[in-house]
Amino acid sequence: MRRHGLRILAIWLVLTIILEFLVAKLPVPSPTGSDEGLGEHQTVYMLFYVAIPFFTFIWAMLLYILPTFRARDADSGDGPPVTDSTPLLLLWAGISFVTVIFLAGWGTFTLHEITQPDGGKPLHIQVIGQQWYWTYRYPTYGGAESSVLVLPVHRSIELDVTSIDVVHSLWIYSLDIKEDAVPGVVNHAFLNATHTARSNQYGQNWVACNELCGLYHGYMRSRMRIVSHAAFKRWATALYHREKANGLLKNLPKYHGEYFPPPVYPPAPQDQST
């Protein structure tokens, strides 16, 4: 009994050390384009470090038990009638409970960190999902609207995400940002980009839709650019002046934090007359 235990322990230790080492060395795909992304990145690694001992324990047990306790061909007898082991059950329950508390505590703390605007008044950008494209409005620039997401680097930003038809979900993979765009609801995501970037031809650094929203859901992607503060100001001011000059701003609905979605079905004729 003790002999078996020690051997399993040895296999478990070896497996654990190898896998922990591998995870520390191998790049787990988890982008770090924003401060929030860093927090999530650390969480993913922490989850790997915590999960591996459990993973290797089950494997160590299987790898040891299956060859060791394999029934010999002629053996048709039964094993010993062991039914319970209260200390073992208690130990197992205790370890899993402590792990759960630790994970929940860590998660709560990180969540608090990444869902707060960090320092100063954030720059608001409204993100509007509709079938099947994204629109970005900049309230500080007169509600000017763009189909490309342009962000200043190293600046606290709040994305106010909503939809005007069905449920979409904003996913900026490289910035670790995901927020559902639910009609009638405004969801907030905070971010602070750590370096400049732009969408490339291989499909990296794009904004995608992450909730099935109908026919062209898979194609609901938009380009984005993370630029220096000065470049952002230049771009946004130019956008504002262009849209003012060509009359777009006048025709757009006045900027409002909440978009009320138009009806799914056309209104009945008598509604139009009033």
Partner: peptide, 14 residues
Amino acid sequence: VFLSDVPADIQLHG
């Protein structure tokens, strides 16, 4: 467990 952790789930969800 990865998905239950909200910070990790923000990236992995969906």
